[in-house]
Simulated assay, not measured.
Amino acid sequence: MKKSSFIMATVALASFAFGGAEAQAAVSSTHNSENKINFTSGEGVVTPPVNPLDPDNPNVPDPIDESDPNNPGTGQDGPLSIDYVSNIKFGEHKITGQNIAYKAKNANPFVQVTDLRGAGEGWSLSAKMSEFKSGNKVLRGATLAMKDGVVKAGSSSNISLAPTKSDILFDNTESKLVMNAVNKGGRGTWLTVWPGVNQANEAIQLHVMAGTPEANTEYTSSITWELEDAPK
């Protein structure tokens, strides 16, 4: 064992000695190489909807929303696009003599916007809702509230400034601000998700006044989503 220890010490000393010689070596020549990449705007690029619960997860549920199974997305192409908007379902209910707030059936409805312009001018998403109607029958006084939305990036590594979201109350036909991306913000894909319990989502509620519904009648309203190429 003593002989082995002696040999190891000798090797270590030799290595130290050679190392000192290498540290004194001088650089005799240098040259710089270049690396390049060029980008253009995402003109014509169609961004599919992502998983609203985990946007980074490549496994997107099919359907994305069980309460809205026939909605694959808008199919709009870039560079600035609305990629997906949930159709809100409220189901069937018996008429009562009270004012009632009906909760959305959708568990995680969302709206998705993608900005591939590459200039960062910002953008704004607004929406306006028509009256709930069935032919010439109107569900008078009905209002739709969407609150407690959560803004998510399509990729968690997105370093762009996130857009801000707003709670919405559709109580007339005026346009309401939904998301707003300031100058140099909102690049890439962004969502506002209204999370809740399946079949009873408190984040989205339709308020119906007593005395307005008619039996055996399905009322429909449409929301028009407007994406502008500048912030508000």
Results as ranks from 00 to 15, higher is better:
Lys152Gly: 03
Val193Asp: 04
Ala200Pro: 01
Lys147Gln: 11
Pro63Leu: 10
Phe90Met: 07
Leu177Ser: 09
Ser155Trp: 12
Asp229Ile: 04
Asp54Ile: 14
Ile88Arg: 02
Gly20Val: 14
Ala25Pro: 00
Gly75Met: 10
Met1Pro: 09
Gln98Met: 10
Gly141Val: 09
Ser124His: 00
Val46Arg: 02
Lys94Cys: 06
Phe6Thr: 12
Gly149Arg: 02
Ala230Val: 10
Ser130Met: 09
Gly73Gln: 08
Arg140Gln: 14
Gly20Ile: 15
Pro58Asn: 05
Ala23Ser: 09
Leu80Asn: 00
Leu169Ser: 12
Arg117Gly: 03
Asn99Gly: 02
Leu161Ala: 12
Ala200Asn: 13
Leu144Tyr: 04
Gln98Asn: 11
Phe6Leu: 14
Ile37Gly: 06
Phe170Asp: 04
Ser124Trp: 00
Ala181Asp: 03
Glu34Gln: 13
Val85Leu: 05
Leu206Ala: 03
Val182Thr: 14
Asn70Tyr: 10
Pro55Ala: 11
His31Pro: 00
Val46Pro: 00
Ala21Cys: 09
Phe132Arg: 01
Gly118Ala: 05
Thr10Gly: 12
Arg140His: 13
Arg117His: 04
Gly118Tyr: 06
Leu161Tyr: 08
Thr40Arg: 09
Ile88Asn: 01
Thr224His: 07
Gly75Leu: 10
Asn106Ile: 07
Ser130Trp: 01
Asn32Pro: 03
Asp77His: 08
Ser81Ala: 15
Glu43Thr: 14
Asp68Ala: 06
Lys176Ser: 07
Gly75Asn: 07
Met8Ile: 15
Ile168Phe: 08
Pro69Arg: 03
Gly42Cys: 04
Ile88Phe: 10
Ala142Gln: 03
Trp190Asn: 01
Thr143Leu: 05
Asn87Pro: 02
Phe6Met: 12
Asn99Trp: 03
Ala9Met: 15
Ser67Val: 04
Asn180Pro: 02
Ala215Asp: 09
Pro55Arg: 02
Ser134Met: 06
Lys3Trp: 12
Asn106Trp: 03
Thr164Arg: 05
Pro79Lys: 02
Tyr219Glu: 08
Asp68His: 01
Lys184Glu: 14
Glu22Arg: 11
Phe6Arg: 09
Gly20Phe: 12
Gly188His: 01
Leu227Ile: 05
Lys3Pro: 01
Asn35Glu: 11
Asn59Met: 12
Glu92Tyr: 06
Glu202Arg: 06
Ala101Ser: 12
Gly149Leu: 05
Met129Tyr: 00
Leu139Met: 08
Ala210Ser: 12
Lys133Val: 14
Thr30Leu: 10
Ser33Glu: 10
Val138Asp: 07
Glu174Met: 11
Val111Glu: 04
Glu174Arg: 12
Glu174Asp: 15
Ser166Arg: 06
Val85Cys: 05
Ile64Lys: 01
Lys2Ile: 15
Lys184Cys: 09
Ser157Gln: 13
Glu66Gln: 12
Val85Ala: 07
Ser124Phe: 00
Asp148Ser: 15
Ser5Leu: 15
Asp167Cys: 04
Met129Ile: 06
Val50Leu: 15
Asn216Gly: 00
Leu169Lys: 07
Ala23Lys: 09
Gly149Ser: 03
Lys184Gln: 15
Thr74Cys: 06
Asn70Glu: 14
Pro72Glu: 08
Leu13Met: 13
Ala142Asn: 04
Asn51His: 08
Ser156Ala: 11
Lys176Arg: 11
Phe170Thr: 07
Gly20Glu: 11
Thr192Pro: 02
Ser126Leu: 06
Leu80Ala: 04
Glu228Met: 14
